[in-house]
Design a protein around this nucleic acid. Sequence first.
DNA 1: ACCTGAACACCGTTCAAGT
DNA 2: ACCTGAACACCGTTCAAGT
Lengths: 190, 190
Amino acid sequence: MAYRAHDVVTRALDVLDAHGLADLTMRRLGKELGVQPSALYHHFANKQSLLAAVADEILARGARPVEAERWQDRVVAICTMLRDSLLAYRDGAEVVATVHAFGLGATQPRDALTGALSGAGLRADDISVGTRTLLHYVYGHTIDEQTHLQADSAGALGDDAAAGVTDRDFANGLELILDGIALRVGVTQA
Amino acid sequence: MAYRAHDVVTRALDVLDAHGLADLTMRRLGKELGVQPSALYHHFANKQSLLAAVADEILARGARPVEAERWQDRVVAICTMLRDSLLAYRDGAEVVATVHAFGLGATQPRDALTGALSGAGLRADDISVGTRTLLHYVYGHTIDEQTHLQADSAGALGDDAAAGVTDRDFANGLELILDGIALRVGVTQA
DNA sequence: ACCTGAACACCGTTCAAGT
DNA sequence: ACCTGAACACCGTTCAAGT
């Protein structure tokens, strides 16, 4: 039944956010649902495809309308929304990046970026290079952020100078890539 | 004894390259060395620090002198060398990226890139943003490549159109980021 | 259709004890 | 200094059997 599978995903997200990816095991999730671990294999072929459903749910919950007109603003809006979506759940960036790398889902951000860059007047291969570069940036940067956030909330003496990466850093790196893309359109950002 | 620890790393690299990261377990490695798994804990505090040593060995084996003069050429040389180093061992990109993310080692590429960008006349925070952006790009791109290579050598009907990412794609994305950095120096590449 | 119970073939890590 | 043996507390997955 479709709604039962979705219940499993909802509970998986609870476990993920409360205890982290390392504790999101089939056995743990079964216990949390009051069910034998083997029962989960009725709804999902294996752990990987459960994680794919979890990743897509993280993205769906973080989805917002992108209102901007200029392609640069659309790209920034999409990347910011993606980062916010990932930061909303513990280990969210790692889950979604892994699922995307294995090609089992999480295609929505790629499609959105490709769509935005298609409105920029780029050659087809620049669209694909730009999309991949942006995705690698957002995933890599956000995994870094989330790793440091957890390290801080654990050991945490709070060396506030070496505090790692900030919102500003994210925006700066994004701008840098955007400038590289804009150069290929023959347009410089104001 | 220092040389015994290095023997463990050497054998770990053999197992990694022959069977992949999933099969690089403490138990498997012990068996391969003719030793109980618990014996490994005399040389390494835990699996993570063993993996850190493996990552550093992958980077050390792939290290080449960087001869270029212009900072752009130095960055390209470093990133290309890094990618080549990672591709030389099965799951090399994932191992090194993970170790780097956890901050347990693999600092050499970051230092090299920071050094190259320091010769470009950038503001301090542009050096750090540029370094991080380049690293995320190389790790992300190379993990993608390696994942697709393995998928191809497994299932592999050889849909040569959908064959994924190439050497050229790597160079193009790198150039794009480099252009974004160059804009911050007030220098456009010829 | 959905779940149980039991099993299979594994993990990382610890620790007293041996040499 | 280096290693063994045994244990602890886990994994993902399969599959006959139940309802």
